[in-house]
Design a protein around this nucleic acid. Structure first.
Lengths: 349, 349
DNA sequence: CTGAAAGCGCTAACAC
DNA sequence: GTGTTAGCGCTTTCAG
């Protein structure tokens, strides 16, 4: 009998080890290891004996233990520090990472940050302690230089959706600036001059970039921004803000909402006041059922799935030993015309 | 210089180990271990020396290695085998598990099965190989007896949304039968007799349970089911099926859709034909923006978040050593009245 | 309070 | 082909 009360659960038996298999099959541990890992150079009879023993004991290899000793020390797991697993952007991004990882037998650890910098650091630490081979991060903090020290061992890191600050790593970003500008051009082309901006927390880089794109596009048309509301982070915030705007005089003839939660809050306000067919709306971020609303919602769509694929590709190329200087990859946004953005304004010809 | 080309990445330095810290601090490895784990009984000067060395080397403990030797052998990670990380049900369930796990410093591995039994088994194997402490499973296969052998060591397993087959473990299930029956009673109360059933793949247990509830509730009212369509698994399937029904004569005056994808397909068909204000609809599963459509959609809502919390609680109680016979926990569904289900039928008083 | 020795489950390196 | 020895990074056990 050999040691091990260890790998046991409350009421459970102890798990058989590679050693147990070797004993039962009458071979050395190394031979079992060879069979388990499909290495060539084990005779047919021994292979059979080992397989029989494995089946009999119901042996399962401990990948964690093997990675401790294996040459590259890889855990075959990567970590994703996301905004909120339950929101569609994070969920779709996560899924795209999973699909890319699956092809390589790599698993994924994921966690939600909820825009909390402390939580971001805690997650990074926890993932590192578990030897994640790489890190995908949607940052919430305003400075990620801690990450440089945290992973100064060559662990690949890719930022997604928001650029790194105080740190030089690959990033995959949506073209927020151009997307917001497209929205403005579209609304102006439909006769609007009085376009309200409704934006998310200014601590969020993407919100700032979208605002920048909004402002510059207006100025391209020689229009001065009329109404600007920042720091809307919930549907309720947005709904209240939009209701306020619409009841004012003069009310804007069009709305640009910088993010899907804000867009949805705006739609609620429009519907409550029965103005959804009068006031134009273009939202940043596509969302499910946007095409089934009345009017259907014109949006600037991001492509979180493509962002995930790109991030995964950067990570795996680095893990395969490729080297290059940290680079930002811009993923295009596109205007999806559905109705709400084509409501005519007072200056339409 | 000590060994280790191991824990190194392509271009990276090797990670410092506990041993390196000990050498630098001039103490034994065990003393470093004590400091790292906050064990009492280390003198102030040695503690300080160790902490200095840790900071200087930027040492990060390897939790994986420690768990190999630690008494309970736990990896402080649990695994979730879900349907599809990108769909809202899975995503919200995942998030609820995360929140519960976070309180205990436990991380989560998750993967998508996509209704593929092979994928289910592969994921279970991969999670086990990485020593997940427990398994949350939304099964896709029609028999999970393999799991009994796979985890016959006392690893807690909880099934969510669908009951285990060929295996006796805890389960957290929505009250599908009663939910579907509520939908029928509601439609009948609004004057409908000719209620079409539109359901998901019959391989999925929940779809079968909902159909059962539908049928029995109709029969309670002495109504014989008129139109039944099974095996709709995409929006397109559902949309086509509903369009067919609505163009037939006689067309049903109400629809019961057994799942949100099916519901959304049905809404598309209704809108295309302009019949959304004539034909009543109750869908199983709530979905975002259901209240913003016109008409707003009456649904039988599940509570995936509550299901996740319940599953997590079962798992952690077992991990804490509590014991009981495997039990099924029913999570209530509830009717949310919004408009589409209250469209009057020909038999309303 | 501290450290030496042994070993968790497995594989690298080298022997035979 | 196959086995032996050592050791991955850490904790256990136990001696001082």
């Amino acid at each position: 009998m050999h040691a091990a009360v260890s790998a046991t659960s409350p009421s459970g038996r102890t798990r058989p080890t590679l050693r147990d298999v070797a004993l039962l099959a009458g071979v050395s541990p190394k031979t079992v290891s060879r069979v388990v890992n499909g290495e060539a150079g084990v005779s047919a009879p021994k292979t059979a004996a080992v397989q029989r023993a494995i089946a009999q004991l119901d042996y399962r290899p401990n990948f964690t233990a093997s990675s401790l000793r294996r040459a590259n020390g890889r855990s075959a797991a990567i970590a994703a520090v996301l905004e909120d697993l339950a929101n569609p952007f994070s969920a779709v991004l996560h899924r795209a990472l999973e699909d890319a990882a699956r092809e390589r037998g790599v698993l994924i650890f994921a966690g939600s940050v909820d825009e909390d910098p402390d939580r971001e650091r805690d997650l990074v630490r926890a993932f590192r302690a578990r030897q994640a081979d790489a890190l995908v991060v949607v940052p919430a903090s305003d400075d990620q230089s801690y990450l440089g020290r945290e992973v100064n061992d060559g662990t690949p890191v890719v930022f997604v959706d928001r650029p790194p600050v105080g740190l030089s790593v690959d990033a995959v970003l949506a073209d927020n600036h151009h997307g917001a500008a497209m929205a403005v051009h579209h609304l102006v082309a439909h006769g609007h001059r009085d376009i309200a901006y409704l934006g998310d927390l200014r601590t969020i880089t993407t919100a700032r970039q979208r605002f920048q794109g909004f402002k510059e596009a207006l100025s391209d048309h020689g229009i001065r921004p009329a109404t600007i509301v920042h720091d809307l982070h919930t549907e309720r915030d947005s709904e209240a803000a939009v209701r306020g705007l619409l009841l004012a005089d003069p009310a804007p003839t069009a709305l640009f909402t910088s993010q899907n939660i804000v867009t949805i809050g705006a739609i609620r306000a429009l519907q409550q006041l029965g103005r959804q067919h009068e006031v134009a709306l273009v939202g940043f971020d596509d969302f499910p059922l946007a095409d089934l609303l009345s009017p259907a919602v014109t949006v600037i769509a991001q492509d979180p799935s493509e962002m995930g694929r790109t991030a995964a590709s950067l990570i795996f190329r680095r893990l395969d030993g490729e080297q290059w200087h940290p680079t930002s990859h811009l993923v295009a946004t596109r205007l999806i015309v559905r109705g709400s953005g084509e409501i005519r304004g007072p200056h339409s010809r």
